[in-house]
């Protein structure tokens, strides 16, 4: 608490307490990081050492990481995940920003009622919709296709809600001056609101991308052929078909976790802000 001021000469109480704090925090981080440490170390072990007590490989075998690509079509899984997640993200940000613009910057009769309806659907458990959605996909003949993976995820009430919150913070005077200049609503959306809502767009982009990179239920039921598996389903397939080769499995797990870690390190500022904003306003 920065408000409690203690003026003491030398290394005061404050010094020792923050040093102890560092110790506690480091020990906590250590505890949380140990599973990851085991994962990385095991991924460098040769098969014979997988069951040994020692965490540290006697003989380091980095070739595990290449071997994974030979054992299962891991590159294909990667690509599928990136492909699907990118499309979903693009479509969802587009449709959500259009809808959010309509809900926040335009006046039309019944607007708030429709928005309330949107909000209500946010509390529906996704599970309720899974079975009928799957039957819809069967009748549209979209089972086992990328389109079938992408389409249902491309529209989101949450994204609309999040972007609307961001757009509401943009001053209304901008709209008026744009109107005086004779700009159309589309120009207002594309040239003025979208650039100003950029932090919101970035936040939604990260959320949606991460959510889809990790999404499991829908790809699991939709995709039947191995070469169309996304990473989570592919990992499950790897575990159930060759679960004994723990060293390769851990290399695969590491390779699917590390991009997420890197992405988080790059974008953590926006993410943290987005989470705090989304919930505080909700």
């Amino acid at each position: 608490m920065s408000t409690t001021k203690t003026y003491r000469p030398g290394l005061g109480r404050k010094f020792y307490s923050s040093a102890m704090l560092h110790v506690v925090l480091t020990l906590m981080s250590l505890g949380l990081a140990l599973p990851f440490a085991w994962m990385l170390l095991t991924s460098f072990k040769p098969l014979v050492e997988v069951q040994s007590d020692s965490w540290i490989p006697v003989r380091w075998q980095p070739s595990n990481y290449i071997e994974v690509f030979n054992v299962i079509p891991f590159a294909k899984f990667y690509w599928n995940s990136l492909f699907v997640a990118s499309w979903v993200t693009f479509l969802q940000v587009m449709t959500s920003s259009l809808a959010a613009f309509s809900f926040s910057r335009l006046q039309w009769p019944g607007r708030d009622k429709v928005f309330a309806l949107y909000l209500c659907t946010m509390m529906l458990p996704g599970l309720v919709m899974m079975i009928p959605n799957f039957q819809i996909m069967i009748s549209l003949e979209l089972v086992d296709t990328y389109t079938g993976l992408i389409l249902p995820a491309a529209f989101s009430a949450f994204g609309t809600f999040l972007l609307r919150q961001f757009m509401l913070t943009i001053p209304a005077s901008l709209d008026e001056s744009a109107q005086i200049d004779g700009a159309s609503k589309w120009r207002l959306y594309w040239d003025i609101i979208l650039p100003l809502a950029r932090p919101g767009l970035i936040t939604l982009t990260i959320f949606t991308f991460m959510g889809n990179y990790n999404s499991f239920f829908w790809p699991l039921v939709m995709i039947k052929s191995v070469e169309k598996y996304t990473l989570p389903v592919g990992l499950l397939f790897f575990d159930s078909s060759r679960g004994q080769s723990t060293h390769l499995l851990m290399a695969a797990v590491a390779m699917s976790v590390i991009p997420m870690i890197l992405l988080f390190l790059l974008l953590q500022k926006q993410l943290v802000k987005g989470i705090q904003m989304g919930a505080v306003k909700g």
Partner: peptide, 13 residues
């Protein structure tokens, strides 16, 4: 106009 902007989302919805 309002519904026009909403259209892509509401179709999916």
């Amino acid at each position: 106009t309002g519904l026009g902007f909403l259209l892509p989302n509401i179709l999916g919805f």
